[in-house]
Simulated assay, not measured.
Amino acid sequence: MDLLLPFLDISEPDGQQFQVELEKDMVTIGRFEQFNDIALSPDPQQLITRKVHCTLEHNLYGWWVVDNGSINRTFVRCGNDVQVVQGRALLSEGDSIRILGKLSETSEPGYWELTFSDPLGTRPSGPPLQVAYLEYDWIQARLYRIEGSKQQEIHELRPQEHKLVRYMAQRNQTNGHVPVMCSYEELLAAVWGEDAYHTEGDINHLIWELRKKLEPDPKAPRFLETVRGLGYRLVTSPRAKEGA
């Protein structure tokens, strides 16, 4: 039976193959099954990020692969051309995502190949629309919400909120200005350092208080996104310019 949903044909470094349908608009890919929708295992050399090496994300203009600031990077092969993903890359029919999964004794790399296919996908009819995003002024330590030509400052941020925003904005900046999923562990360390008395619940509370200041509807966040069970992403780049 023909597949109605987009899918990935996945080849392991040792040549084994399997197929995965993309049933959600955001699919996480990484080493551990408990943290990801698609687990690339076994990975005995620990070359793949355990919590979200990269994500696949769908919008009106197609499917994108988004590197999550991984150490060993994410690549896309289009025909014979292989390019490192600089933040995010739009996928076309037959493109392959490549993730390093093995190094031989002579340092020859072996890759996971995830070949994308969406033959029944809807094609965009025009250019992307303008969307809103956040911008952080590092020198003045000010946070702004940008919507088209309008700029609005988010006032009265608490010190903990500033620490959280600065850390998440920095992670995005080092990832080509593309939003990175920040784990609970990262955020706890960024906000409270080695203070062991704070928990994931404290991060959730801090996120909720911040959403009430920067989101038009805190229950439907656009700027401070949840990655269920793993952490959060702060939208600090004009993704409309890239089709997001």
Score class of each variant (00 low, 15 high):
I10A: 05
L8C: 08
E12L: 07
G62T: 08
Y61Q: 14
L40F: 03
T55L: 10
P13Q: 00
Q17C: 15
F32G: 00
V65K: 07
K51C: 10
H58A: 15
W63H: 09
R50N: 06
K51F: 11
D37N: 12
V65L: 08
D37H: 15
D9Q: 13
N68H: 06
V27Y: 04
E12H: 13
E12V: 01
V65A: 06
E23D: 05
V27C: 08
E57W: 14
Q17P: 07
R31E: 00
I10T: 02
N59V: 12
T74D: 00
N72P: 09
G30H: 04
D43R: 10
T74F: 11
E57Q: 15
G69F: 08
I10H: 04
Q45H: 08
F35E: 01
R73W: 09
V52R: 11
Q16C: 09
T74R: 08
F18E: 00
G15E: 00
W63P: 11
E33W: 03
N59A: 14
D9Y: 07
D67A: 12
I29T: 05
G62F: 13
S11M: 13
G62M: 10
L47E: 00
K24L: 11
L60T: 02
E23F: 11
L40R: 02
R73V: 08
W64K: 15
T74A: 07
F18Y: 14
L60N: 08
N36E: 01
N72Q: 10
H53Y: 07
E57V: 15
G62D: 01
L60S: 13
F7K: 04
N36W: 04
L40W: 01
R50K: 12
E33V: 08
T28I: 09
Q16Y: 11
P42W: 03
R73K: 15
S41E: 00
I71M: 12
G15P: 07
E33I: 04
W63E: 01
T49N: 13
L8A: 07
A39V: 00
P42H: 04
Q34E: 06
V66M: 09
N72D: 04
D9P: 08
E12N: 03
D14W: 08
T49S: 15
G30F: 09
Q17R: 15
S11C: 13
I71K: 15
S11F: 09
L47Q: 01
I10K: 07
K24V: 05
P42T: 00
L22H: 02
P42N: 02
H58M: 13
S11K: 15
I71D: 01
E12W: 04
R73Q: 13
D43A: 11
Q17A: 13
G62W: 10
N59K: 14
C54F: 02
Q17L: 09
D25G: 13
D9H: 12
G69Y: 08
I71P: 03
G30T: 04
N72A: 08
Q45C: 09
I48E: 01
Q16P: 00
D37A: 13
P13T: 00
